[in-house]
Amino acid sequence: MLLCWNAVKSLVRRIVLSRTYRQSSYWREEAFLRDPDNRLLWRANKRRLEADCIRDAMLAVSGRLDLTPRKGSLVAGLGDKSDSLFGFTQGVPSDLDGSHHRSVYLPVVRDRLPDVLDLFDFAEPGLVTGDWDTTNVPMQALYLMNNPFVREQAGAFAKRLGDFSPDVEDRLRQGFYMAFGRGPDDSERARIREFLSRLPDGSAEDAEALLCQVLLSSAEFRNLD
């Protein structure tokens, strides 16, 4: 086959415009019973976002995403010192992050990845990796529950919703649209009401930040349908 760029382009065009490629991941019982692994592509595959997209998605909904490239490398903060000093020097944050630039601008050092990339199965920089892992490990959950970066994005997300509307219902609907691309259903609304009633009396702003953190931590937020 004669392979030139135009041929590749038209091949890609043909694939992405095909009915198979454009299917949703919607469940079909009779298809699932015959082909549970979706080998015959009766629907789109569901998949988890990659590490960098998870971080970018959190920044996007919090409104903190900075689309400009960062100036210079974060690693330059080490000066001429050894990379064994990550976490020990003032110059470089211990999670190798501390910015709101897109994840593509995070440093990839051979022996040491930024926490968020490391936790969510970023390709090991010392290896040739054809396919990224998708793991579900408690360290990821601990990160989403407790990491200051995640909490900061949740706080910013809540504040953004607060600016959007004084009405709780409006804010909730907008929050769901931003995080999941859909509105909340009745049972989700009920769960959220129950959640808010369980919180000790405090400022409403805190409660909404805690709620936003739940949205950012939910499986739906980091999985593509």
């Binding site: 469940w27 019982e29 699932f32 549970p36 569901k46 988890r48 998708t134 579900n136 529950m145 259903d185 049972s187 989700e188 769960r191 959220i192 129950e194 959640f195 369980r198 919180l199 000790p200 805690l210 709620l211 953190q213 739940v214 931590s217 939910s218 499986a219 739906e220 999985n223 349908d225």
Partner: peptide
């Protein structure tokens, strides 16, 4: 407070799982 968060999260994830019917990732 964190337990309340996790209960809500679990609820949301379970509803998602019911909608998807089969999703090992969730």
């Amino acid at each position: 407070v964190q337990r309340a968060q996790l209960d809500l999260l679990k609820g949301l994830n379970q509803e998602k799982l019911e909608r998807d019917r089969w999703n090992p990732e969730i």
